[in-house]
Each structure stands twice: as structure tokens, then as C-alpha cells.
């Protein structure tokens, strides 16, 4: 079964996030550009576009299974997460399967994550 640990507190509204540029921002103030710029200067990491193609109830209570198509290679990746887990959607910001629960737990304003949303994810930069 997936780990049923609580989500880390970096999703809590007001949490201080350090960008790769050294700049500090609150988690709720982050924008798409912050992630893109951070990946640019971090070296070794790259941002992928991960499109949500399916959201399913999980066999384990309290979890949902998200299906993504990731990056240029269009790889299929599944992720088991609690419904309150926030993902950063391009041009939209924080989004979760259950925004109400996210607000209760983290006070983080969220949109509802939907099939077709394009999330920000990271992977290792391939060395050519």
C-alpha cells in the first residue's frame, strides 16, 4: 500500500520556499515562471509537462491514483497520492483532487485538478 504519512509542511500556506536563484517566496505566491527559472539555473534537473490523463479511486482508502503522460517521450506514469496533495498546474497554480481538504489541512488555496491539466514535474536532465 502507499505510505499513509501526512504530507510535508512545505505545502502549508506561508511556508518559505527557496528558489534555485536564492530568492525566497511563500508557497502560495509561487508562479509557473519560478519553477521554470529554478530548473534552468539548478543544473541537472529539468521541468517536464505532465498531463493528467486519468484520476481513479485507489484500492487503498484515502488515496487516488493519478495517471500522467510525462515529457517529450510521452511516458505513462502513475502516482498514488492523498486527494489533498497539491500539484502545480501550468498557468493555473496549485490544484488538487480535493481542494476543500487541501484548504482544511494546509490553508492553501487550490483549484480542482482535472483530466487534461498539465502539471509541473521534474526529472533528471539527460546527459548527451
Amino acid at each position: 500500500p502507499p505510505h499513509s504519512t501526512a504530507l510535508p509542511s512545505h505545502f502549508m500556506k506561508g511556508a518559505i520556499i527557496q528558489l534555485a536563484t536564492g530568492e525566497l517566496k511563500r508557497v502560495e505566491d509561487l508562479q509557473t515562471q519560478d519553477f521554470l527559472r529554478s530548473a534552468e539555473v539548478s543544473g541537472g534537473l529539468k521541468i517536464d509537462s505532465s498531463t493528467v490523463v486519468d484520476i481513479q479511486e485507489n484500492q487503498w482508502p484515502g488515496f487516488v491514483t493519478l495517471h500522467f503522460i510525462v515529457g517529450e517521450q510521452q511516458s505513462k506514469v502513475c502516482l498514488d497520492v492523498p486527494p489533498e496533495h497539491p500539484f502545480f498546474v501550468y498557468g493555473q497554480g496549485w490544484s488538487s483532487c480535493n481542494p476543500r481538504q487541501t484548504a482544511q489541512l494546509f490553508a492553501l488555496p487550490c483549484h480542482r485538478l482535472q483530466v487534461g491539466d498539465v502539471c509541473i514535474s521534474i526529472s533528471l536532465q539527460s546527459v548527451v
Binding site: F11, I17, F35, D48, V70, I122
Partner: peptide, 25 residues
Amino acid sequence: NVEPRSVAVFPWHSLVPFLAPSQPD
């Protein structure tokens, strides 16, 4: 005297999932 409180700072990459595409053959 008030003890200074330390504030946790989290790295940006801890906020987004690491979704590694499987390597092509």
C-alpha cells in the same frame, strides 16, 4: 529574553513530483 525562532526553508524542488520517464530502449 525572547529566543529567536528558526524558520524552515524548503527547496523549490520538494514541491513538485519527480516523475522520471522510463528510458527508451
